[in-house]
Design a protein around this nucleic acid. Sequence first.
DNA 1: GCGGATCAC
DNA 2: TATGGTGATCCGC
Length: 640
Amino acid sequence: MTSPPPEEEKVADEHDTLRYSLLGPSLTKSGQDNVDQQKVSEIIYNASKGSKYFENEKSRDKNLTQKIERILSTKKQLEKLDLASDRRKADDFIAELELTRDLSQTIVHIDCDAFFAAVEELDRPELKDLPFAVGKGVLTTCNYHARKFGCRSGMAGFVAKKLCPQLIQIPLNFDKYTSKAQEIRELIVDYDPRFESASIDEAYLNITEYCQKNDISPEEAVEQLRREVHEKTKITISAGIAANAKLAKICSNLNKPNGQFILPSKRPAIMAFMRDLPTRKVNGIGRVFERELDAIGVKTCGDIYTYRQFISKLFGEKAFAFLMQCYLGLGRTSVQPAEEYERKSVGTESTFGEMSDPTQLREKLRATAEELEKDMIRTQFKGRTLCLKIKLHTYEVFTRQTIPPKAVYLADDIYKFALPMLSKLEHEFPGMKLRLLGLRCTHLASMKKPDTMAFFGFKKRPTPDSPEVGETMSPPPKRKVELLSNTTEEEEEQWQKWPDELLFEDAERQEREDEYQELEFLSQEIDKRRHHGKEILPNPTPKKVLEEKESREESIEEEWWDCPICNRPQAQDERSFNEHIDLCLSRQTIRDAVQESADNDRARVVVREATPTNKRRTRNEKRDKSGKVGDPKQRRLFFG
DNA sequence: GCGGATCAC
DNA sequence: TATGGTGATCCGC
């Protein structure tokens, strides 16, 4: 790539990259090892050729090729300069990162093998020996028979049929997968009550404590877990065991299906492992970044070190930090229930036959708004920002956003504020033909929060069996002490944004009061018949805790923890207990503040200083202050 | 803050 | 014959 290739070669090269791109994003997945990729890509290419989809992919590929040319030309310029300081900067950064290495935890990533297909096979055993896929238009997954033909997830159905004419396609049954996934979660929760669901068929566990308590090696523990899951649910899972989530995730793919891989938690072993690991195996490096890295000479994570002096100028600081961690094999060692992550957006979108009639488009927009309203109520959020997304018949995607005068969640409001954006787009692209329309709310304002409800005097003591999530065995007295003592910087940072939200909500209290009762009812109703897989259910209660609870209930009457502020008895549930105390404290503080002064600013200051309590405290929480180092959630590309 | 782009599943 | 939906992050402007 250093000297410009002759014209014919260049054309061939473009087609090669396009071919590669058309293979789809799941190329690195298992079950493809014995497949003739050359042949497969030829078939996909020919099946796609000439379609609008293909043309769009071609255009995207061309853009990427140009971007890579710019990267290479920048690199060439950089090579003329003295990069000693950049190299030193990288080395300093690497040294700093090295200090954060934590090899004390045992993290496991588990991944169900061809999950949807496996669940379907349970109901229809006759499928077992046939190639089949789940999903009609686009395959969500396929069994290992189908993979031998080159079929993979994300592939268009008709393309898959070209690869494998006998392929059977069956429709999605999301409810079935959700309930099967829940069965599995009820088993793995015994290995780590605070396990993290990464998706419907994946989870992270920290088994450090489990191994200690049961005097068992990580391999044995995971074999036992996998055996147990297989025996009780008939689903096979693969697992990776390593010192952090990033490595565990990579490892879970190495012995798929129905296998496990352990990477020893020793620095030399980890460094050697990363040195030869293709960049694409790392979660967060996709087809595009892989090509960009490849262009500058980085094929494996070990190569990152060789080119360390170029990376930040070529790809930015975030990518630099991310790649340095890849080189070192660093990743987060914390695992926490998915529901503890803060939601950032709620949205819905759908694809349909090409549509250009403005009236029809408005109907579609209206229907999308109705759909979004349901999701907003289900998740109990309002959006301060509303985003409209369209995909033209050419597959080009555009988004537009607006900030309505008030946070929205009702279909009427959503439609009202989305319509002008649509009209504007119609003006921008006269006679536009759409194949997709979507709406999304961001900058969310919560409308639930049990504390907010109670805060404003709305009824409702926590019932003993309300949320049983996150129940732990740690005793309450210890928590009281932490709670009433000093706060860390990190905590302040966390709850600083809270009073703003509170004031915002306060301003809207009036109009919301009428809505609460109905909303709560609605959200419960929607919850009941939900299950279309948009969300992950809260962690189940560990078996052990359930048993203890049962025996408690049989013998003595229910025990309670007394709230140190209001003295009222509370359910023995750390999470709800926390929430209750937070609520009591903030209510008390605000009353005090309001009494002292009617001045809003003053009240705000007092609130800020005196209620360091809104933050959810969890057992595992401590460091991560070094924000740059541990990514908050593994699936995110970078962190900040 | 906005819009495009990438990524994961 | 006709290539998905949900959610998150990063970058350049």
